[in-house]
Design a protein around this nucleic acid. Structure first.
Lengths: 187, 187
DNA sequence: GTAATTTTTTGATCCAGGTCAAAGGAAAGA
DNA sequence: TCTTTCCTTTGACCTGGATCAAAAAATTAC
């Protein structure tokens, strides 16, 4: 729980009242390596805060798994549109390694939004960070060579890239895995 | 002003008290076609709501203007990271055609966030929409042919694409303008 | 510890689309 | 109206990286 409180405080001061509510409403969930956390045939009702391990957001395109996002320690993972609008969407979530999470049900989140303006502010600000990250990534993907895409990836995920299977990294940055394998070995 | 109130209400009910504050704090600004709205050498202190016309967010890469976003009627435009964090960033904003806007200063926005939880909710929800849009775009850009990128663009900007110069559209979807010109004429 | 499965590497081929160059059209200024 | 500037089209060429195929290496399961 502490890891989450710390993350929260880095955006917004955290009151004891909210701390107490969060403690009673967030549930621990563990996932084994390879385990599915959320499947595309369901509506996503929980958001997962990663305490230890890595979750992955992905979808299927022509049988292939395309990685959209790696959720490292200290990050929230869910199927965004499904979670926020309570509709079905194309995304899956699974665990890349054994992972410990705290999860929050959408109903509890809505309760907190309604009763703690600081919660809403936290959501706005942390979404802002992710948003900025996404914009950078968009730029990195549009006008760069495979090499530059890989370098940009190393800049943002350098600390965990050795824990991520090559194929997942390749689909994340939008190149063929053979190309990525060659990049790794050249020079 | 009405156009903005309408847009706001589509996310969150708008109280009269907030309506009044917004009315007194939002300033009308007009821009002529081609005019710079925000330059990368400044910190972005205002966000612009487009009432009529089109604004464009872009940056320079090797002398070339790369379009990041088209701000159509009913949308907010600013240099996102610069505006939210009050730091310099690489983005410019200009007007693609004669454009009428309402602008809100970051200080006023902060005041509204502090005093009207509904304002913060509106920000969170509307950012959520943009976020979803960005994710789709990211997908559209990674694993598709030039043709598919263009089709995806037409789906989201079909109503205004004839008002956008070809070169800007090409850089927005991440292909060469010669390729886009050929796509338009094939079949 | 060995077999089965999955992941990564290496090789060979090929083409979508980028780049360079130049002509044609449209719009804006004078 | 004419001229200049900007935007779009067309042509020719070439390369980065995708695709297909198969071997090698690493994990996982038994």
């Amino acid at each position: 729980m502490d890891k989450f409180f710390e993350s929260f405080s880095s955006y917004v001061p955290l009151s004891n009242a909210l701390k107490k509510e969060l403690s009673s409403r967030m549930e621990p969930h563990s996932f084994a390596k390879g385990q599915i956390v959320h499947s595309a045939d369901r509506i996503c009702t929980r958001s997962f805060f990663v305490q230890e391990g890595i979750l992955r957001l992905y979808f299927l395109k022509g049988g292939q798994e395309i990685t959209e996002f790696f959720g490292n320690t200290g990050e929230w993972v869910n199927s965004p549109r499904s979670f926020m609008k309570q509709v079905e969407d194309i995304y899956y979530v699974d665990a890349i390694e054994d992972t410990e999470t705290l999860s929050l049900h959408v109903k509890d989140l809505m309760f907190l939004f309604d009763n703690f303006p600081e919660m809403e502010r936290y959501a706005r600000l942390s979404m802002g960070s992710t948003f900025a990250h996404l914009m950078e990534r968009l730029t990195s993907i549009r006008f760069t060579t495979a090499r530059e895409k890989y370098d940009h990836f190393l800049n943002t995920y350098g600390d965990i890239y050795h824990r991520l299977p090559l194929g997942m990294v390749a689909s994340y940055i939008g190149i063929a895995q053979e190309t990525l394998s060659r990049l790794r070995h050249e020079k």
